[in-house]
């Protein structure tokens, strides 16, 4: 067994604190970002992948279907996007 002097153990403690700080910060940021990231990822997936069981975590295929549908007008599964920006 190696005897550790006070300086070495203080150094070790400080290093551990740094690591803990980094990990904590990373987890906190992940928690904050995750919902947003998930929404954006979902918007870029085909519906099949969203509904898949077991879930597909990393998007296998990128699809802009949702965006195309959104702009394709009422009746084709879209919404009247442009109407919202019209004044009259």
């Amino acid at each position: 067994m190696v005897m550790m002097d006070a300086n070495a153990s203080a150094r070790l403690k400080r290093r551990a604190a740094t690591v803990a700080h980094r990990v904590g910060l990373f987890l906190a940021m992940l928690f904050i970002c995750l919902p947003g990231i998930w929404i954006v990822l979902s918007s870029l997936r085909p519906t099949v992948e969203i509904l898949a069981k077991p879930p597909v975590w990393i998007p296998q295929q990128v699809s802009l279907d949702a965006y195309i549908a959104m702009f394709s007008g009422v009746g084709k599964g879209g919404i009247p996007v442009l109407d919202y920006f019209r004044i009259r």
Binding site: D5, A6, N7, A8, A10, R11, R14
Partner: peptide, 10 residues
């Protein structure tokens, strides 16, 4: 006592 890495309180 060598105090290189000790925190101020020590």
């Amino acid at each position: 006592r060598i105090v290189n890495d000790l925190p101020p309180r020590s």
